[in-house]
Computed example of a mutant assay.
Amino acid sequence: MNLVIFDVDGTLIDSQHMIVSAMERAFGAQSRPVPSRDRILSIVGLSLETAMGVLCPEEPDEIAVELASAYKAAFFELRHSPEHHEPMFPGAIEALDRLAEREDLVLGIATGKSQRGVRAILDLHDLHGRFATIQTADLHPSKPDPSMVLTACAEVGVLPQHAVMIGDTSYDMEMGRAAGASAIGVSWGYHAAESLKATGATALIRHFDELDAALANCFAETATA
């Protein structure tokens, strides 16, 4: 049995509009200069307080806590407004359906979202029942700490070397590698392909149609290791 773990934002879900809008509201509410769009997207995947610390490195920790709280409030408001826009990337649902039918795989999630955030995405896109394990930022240290991957493996009874982390950021690649798993990067997310390769991506895919072959290669390498 092998475990395939997906990141959410930037991998399955195109949430950049919501993330940037919530950041703009959060920084505005605290009367602070709003970071550029590129800087905001560069921290997607990190736990909120860690992300705010990266965006405001000169500020004391309590500022990061305040900004994180303001971001949560802003995101909650946006999710219940006409501006809510978190579509799945092309081919994502079809890929999940294909993999869910296989008897040699179980699927999981490891995300910088909170439990509440993941539940909202599962509700929005009717994804309940597809994932055997779901690990969120409010239960673990921030990526790239390997805690989420290791816990996911333990929950489904799979050794890390039989797991693959799929994500769009260097944090995902580093987390997977730190846990002893393989890592597949996706090119349509929020970090550059060069960054994914430099941080340990076993493979880089340009569309979900390429995922099955990339997984086959990863598992073949594991079987012969």
Rank of each mutant, 00 (worst) to 15 (best):
L3Q: 02
P57C: 05
G108C: 04
M165T: 02
D168R: 01
G10R: 08
E24D: 07
T11Y: 05
G180V: 07
R32S: 11
E86Q: 15
A223M: 08
A193C: 12
A213D: 15
I43H: 05
G200W: 06
C218L: 12
D126S: 15
M23I: 14
V65Q: 09
H140P: 09
T11E: 08
T11S: 01
A70R: 11
R102M: 01
T224Y: 06
L127R: 01
I93P: 00
V54L: 06
G157D: 07
T224W: 04
A68T: 12
I166T: 03
A223W: 05
M175T: 09
G157N: 10
M1P: 14
M148G: 03
L159R: 15
Y190R: 08
L105D: 07
A95W: 08
A73Q: 14
S31D: 14
E103R: 10
E94K: 12
A68H: 04
L67G: 09
E66V: 06
H162W: 10
A181E: 00
A73E: 15
H162F: 11
V8E: 01
H125I: 01
P146N: 09
S81H: 08
R25C: 01
G129R: 00
S170E: 15
M52C: 13
K143V: 01
H17K: 12
F76W: 14
A51C: 06
D123K: 06
E66M: 08
S182E: 10
Y190K: 08
V54D: 12
T222P: 06
A178S: 15
L204S: 09
G112F: 03
A64Q: 07
H191K: 07
L99M: 08
A193M: 11
F208Q: 07
A73W: 03
L48W: 01
H191R: 12
E58A: 13
H80T: 11
Q16M: 13
L159V: 14
A163E: 06
E49M: 11
V54N: 07
A70Y: 08
S114D: 10
V149S: 02
S21I: 04
I40M: 15
A68E: 06
P90R: 02
A163M: 12
M175Y: 11
L196R: 07
V149H: 00
D168P: 02
K143P: 01
R79S: 13
V158S: 11
E210S: 04
S147N: 06
L99N: 05
D209A: 13
P35R: 08
G117R: 00
R25G: 04
D9A: 10
E101K: 15
G185N: 08
Y71Q: 07
L127Y: 01
P33I: 09
E59W: 04
A225D: 12
L215V: 05
A181L: 04
E59G: 03
L211G: 02
R25L: 12
E24I: 04
A64T: 06
I63P: 00
P144C: 01
L99H: 00
G117T: 08
H125G: 03
L122V: 00
V186R: 12
D14S: 08
N217A: 15
S69R: 14
G117H: 00
Q16K: 15
I19G: 10
I109P: 01
I166R: 00
L96N: 00
M148V: 07
A223N: 09
L215Y: 07
L107A: 10
D209V: 05
F75K: 15
G45N: 04
F219P: 05
H80W: 10
A178D: 13
A213T: 14
F27E: 09
D38V: 10
G167A: 03
R119C: 10
Q30D: 11
A193I: 15
